[in-house]
Design a protein around this nucleic acid. Sequence first.
DNA 1: TGCCTGATTGCCT
DNA 2: GGCAATCAGGCAA
Length: 204
Amino acid sequence: MEPHPIDPAFFEQPTLALARALVGTFLVHDAAEGRTVGRIVETEAYLGARDPAAHSYRGPTERNRTMFGPPGRMYVYFIYGMHHCANVVSAPEGVGEAVLLRALEPVEGLELMIARRGRADSRELCRGPARLVRAMGLGPADDGAPLSGPRLYLLPRGALGAWPRRPRVVCDVRVGITRAADLPLRFLEKGNPHVSRPASGTLA
DNA sequence: TGCCTGATTGCCT
DNA sequence: GGCAATCAGGCAA
């Protein structure tokens, strides 16, 4: 039988709680070319006006307006002149907070992911925020898309039986930023080989 | 208007 | 481990 998508109220919890709760859930994308599913194993919280590293730190702009919209939507942005990264928007409308998806464990549609990425190593398929966007067939057109839609949605922890309903989630510093780089806002599944970088070990 | 930097990746040494 | 690719947003002039 078909697993049920996550309840939309899931996205209404505070950003830090959401960043942790997203680890172990499944991202599903039914594209024209086929279906891909990835289990979220690494996230980062971006705390808006409280967080100098967040795109929304200085208020709404054309680029970041999705971050200030209602929670549960996808915020996709363009970076380094060539890459796109995907976030789950959190916090009420008007508050610019979001959770960056940093790594997935490939679950379904591996062949399609390999074709999109041009690489066959399953460990590398979704290891990194820009890589997972490509593997899942996402892009700028998905900016603002609800994550409870018919073709793009999440399945809750435990929806697919092969993975634990209560994953061991640890906390660490964020990756690739220069401002507020010491804040423990990265969440990852302990010991999972698909994360972009293992935990430093000094935080729990 | 011009310069610099960035929530990255992949290729080269 | 180092660095180029490649461009839009942000800030200085």
